[in-house]
Design a protein around this nucleic acid. Structure first.
Lengths: 324, 324
DNA sequence: CTACTAATGCTCAAAGTGAGCATAACCTTT
DNA sequence: AAAGGTTATGCTCACTTTGAGCATTAGTAG
C-alpha cells in the first residue's frame, strides 16, 4: 500500500492544564461540556494565525480565562482515538492529536469572570492528598487495588500486590511523583469510571461511587500527567514562585509546596533549603496576620534563574505523620 | 472570524532520535534526504493503521533499520512552519506538526543493512564533548559567543557575557544537561548554519566552516533536545542499560555513561554508586580482553525497576581534568 | 500578665559525596 | 622468570547534605 493513501490529515488540539493554588488548595481550571460529556480541560484546535503552538494555547486560554498565562510548558502529546464501541466497529482512525500543556497562574482571586471553573485537584485524585496523613479515600482505593491484585496471577516473579504497594507506597514510602502511574494502575484495575466509558459501557453505580471525579475523554489522565510533572519539577526548577504573589511568607511558600506535592513538610528544614539556595530575599516588611509571631515577607529573587543551574525548591524532609 | 474557517487539518509527522553507543562513542541514526536538504533524522507521517503514536514510530523506524526499538519515549512536539523566505511571503500556515521521540538501541553491530547511517553525536555538537577536557571546538565556539555577547546590550542587569558563561560553563561548572540551551544560544547568535537557512539565506563560508555539522530543518534542535533529556534521565532512570549488551563490565558501563554525558567520571565513585544501588549483579564470568586485570562481567538487575522509585545511575564526581 | 500560636534559630547524628591512596591480576617485554 | 605497563578493585577520610527535633522569640487573645 502506498503511503499516500494511508496518510491522513488530522485535527490538532491544544489542551491546557491551568493550575493555581488558592488558600493552600491546588486548583485546576475546568470547563463543563454542553454535550453531556462532563467535566473537561479547556481545549481548542490549533488554528491558522497562531504563531506557534504555545502562542496558540496562550491565546486560547486567555480568551477563556481573561488572564494572561505566566509559566507555560509542554506536557505530552496524545492521540485520541475514536471510541471503539459497538457504534464504531473496526474504526481505526484518529479523532485528533492533542498536545497538552501545563500552565501556572498566580492566585486568581475572584475578580475576573471565567468561562470555566476552578476545581480542587484532589476532587479528581483524593488518594493523592497525604498532607493530613492517610485519607480515607486513599485507604479505600488501596484496599480495592489489593483486592484486584489478589485476583491476578502475573507472569513476573514480583507479585502484583508488591507492584501495587510500590507504586502506591505504604506509609513512609509514598512517592508523590508517581501520580500518573497510580492513575494508570487504577485504570487498569477498572477502578476509574473512564476505564468503562472508554469501552462504551456505562460504569456501574459502585464504580461511580468510588472517590475521585471522572473527566471527559482522557482528560483525567492528562491532569495526572501534569501533577506528576509539576511535583517533580518544583524540586529542580523554581516554578513554585509562578504561583506566589509578589510578596509572601515562607510559610505561604511551604503551604503551596505542600498543596502541590500532597505531603506535609518539615518546617525548619524547608526554610533552611529555601534560604540556603538564595531563592528569596526579604522585603523588609512583616505579615502580621499569621496568628502567632509575625512572619517576614520575602520575594522571589528572579536572578537565581540566571545564577544557578537547577534552582528548585528541594522539599527536604516530610513531617512524620502518625499513620502516613 | 468563525473558528471553523480558521481551523485546518494538518499532517502529523513522527520523528525519531535513535541513539546507540558503539565503542564508547554515542551515535545517532540519520538519513540523507534526496532533495538536497542534507542530513536529517528518520521521520514519517502518522498513518491510519498505526495503533498508537508510539506504535507508529516503532513500525516506521523498524522498517528503516531492520531492528526492533527497545526503549522509546516521547520527547517533544514541534510545529514546523513553512519557511518564511521570499517564495512564501506572509505564509502563516503550518507545514506539519512533528512529534519527536527518543529511542535507544543496544550496540547495533554491523550486521544489519540500514537505510540510513549512524553518525557521531559530537560531529553535530563538538562543543558538547568534554571527556578529554576542553576541546578546541568548545574553546572556539565559546570565544565566538563572547564576541557576540560583547556586541550586545541587554536590558537585564546581568550582562550577556555572564549568561553565556553560565550556560556554557567555565571549566568546572559545565552542566552537561544544558545542551539544548547552548544550541539555542548559538542559534540566537547566528553561529549555527540553520539560523541563516531558516531565514532563506545562504550561510556564509565562515559560518559553515565553524565546527558542528548542520541538519535539515530543525532536526539539530531535536537532537539537542534528545541529548539534554538523555543526559538528565540517566541520572534517575536506568536507561543506560538499554544501550548495554546482556553482560558487560563496569568500565563498559562507565564508558557509555561518559559517552552520553560528555564528561569524564571518577572511576571508583562511579562503581560505588552503581554497586550501592544494586543496579547490577555479577554473572560470575570475567572479561579478559581488558588489557589489564580482568574485569568481572555483570548484568542489569531488571528487578530494580520494580524495587526502587528512581534507580538512575547517578554519575558521581567527575575526574578533574587539567583545563576542563 | 498569662496562655496560645506561629516564626525563627540552632544542634546533632546519619547518610551521601568528592577525592585519592593502595593493592590485585592480567599482559607484554626484557 | 622478573620487570614494567595496564586496568580492576578495595578502602579511607574529610566534607557536605539531610532528617529530626529542641529551644527561643514575638506577636495575639483572654
Amino acid at each position: 500500500m502506498p503511503d499516500s493513501i494511508l496518510e491522513s490529515r488530522l485535527r490538532v488540539d491544544l489542551t491546557a492544564v491551568v493550575i493555581t493554588v488558592l488558600d493552600g488548595e491546588p486548583l485546576v481550571l475546568t470547563v463543563q461540556r454542553d454535550d453531556g460529556k462532563g467535566v473537561g480541560l479547556p481545549s481548542g484546535p490549533l488554528q491558522r494565525g497562531h504563531r506557534s503552538l504555545q502562542e496558540g494555547l496562550r491565546a486560547w486560554v486567555e480568551r477563556q480565562t481573561n488572564r494572561r498565562l505566566g509559566y507555560v510548558e509542554q506536557l505530552y502529546t496524545f492521540a485520541d482515538r475514536r471510541p471503539e464501541g459497538p457504534d464504531h466497529p473496526e474504526s481505526d482512525d484518529y479523532q485528533a492529536v492533542s498536545i497538552a500543556y501545563l500552565a501556572l497562574v498566580p492566585d486568581p482571586g475572584e475578580d475576573v469572570p471565567l468561562e470555566g471553573r476552578w476545581r480542587h485537584w484532589y476532587g479528581f485524585f483524593p488518594w493523592e492528598d497525604l498532607r493530613q496523613g492517610v485519607s480515607p479515600a486513599r485507604t479505600l482505593m488501596l484496599g480495592r487495588m489489593h483486592d484486584w491484585a489478589a485476583g491476578r496471577r502475573r507472569p513476573a516473579d514480583r507479585s502484583c500486590r508488591e507492584r501495587v504497594d510500590l507504586v502506591f507506597g505504604t506509609g513512609e514510602t509514598f512517592d508523590e511523583e508517581r501520580t500518573l502511574e497510580r492513575y494508570e494502575m487504577l485504570y487498569e484495575a477498572g477502578l476509574v469510571a473512564e476505564a468503562m466509558l472508554d469501552h462504551g459501557e456505562t460504569p456501574p453505580a459502585d464504580i461511580l461511587a468510588l472517590p475521585g471525579l471522572p473527566m471527559m475523554a482522557d482528560h483525567r489522565r492528562i491532569l495526572a500527567t501534569a501533577i506528576s510533572r509539576l511535583r517533580a519539577k518544583i524540586k529542580y526548577r523554581p516554578v513554585l514562585f509562578e504561583l506566589m504573589p509578589p510578596a509572601f511568607t515562607l510559610s505561604d511558600l511551604q503551604r503551596t509546596a505542600e498543596a502541590l506535592s500532597g505531603v506535609a513538610l518539615h518546617k525548619q528544614n524547608f526554610r533552611r533549603l529555601v534560604a540556603q539556595q538564595g531563592l528569596v530575599e526579604e522585603t523588609g516588611e512583616l505579615a502580621t496576620d499569621t496568628g502567632g509571631r509575625p512572619a517576614r515577607l520575602v520575594r522571589f529573587r528572579r536572578e537565581v534563574l540566571l545564577e544557578r543551574p537547577a534552582p528548585g525548591v528541594r522539599l527536604g524532609a516530610r513531617t512524620r505523620t502518625a499513620g502516613a
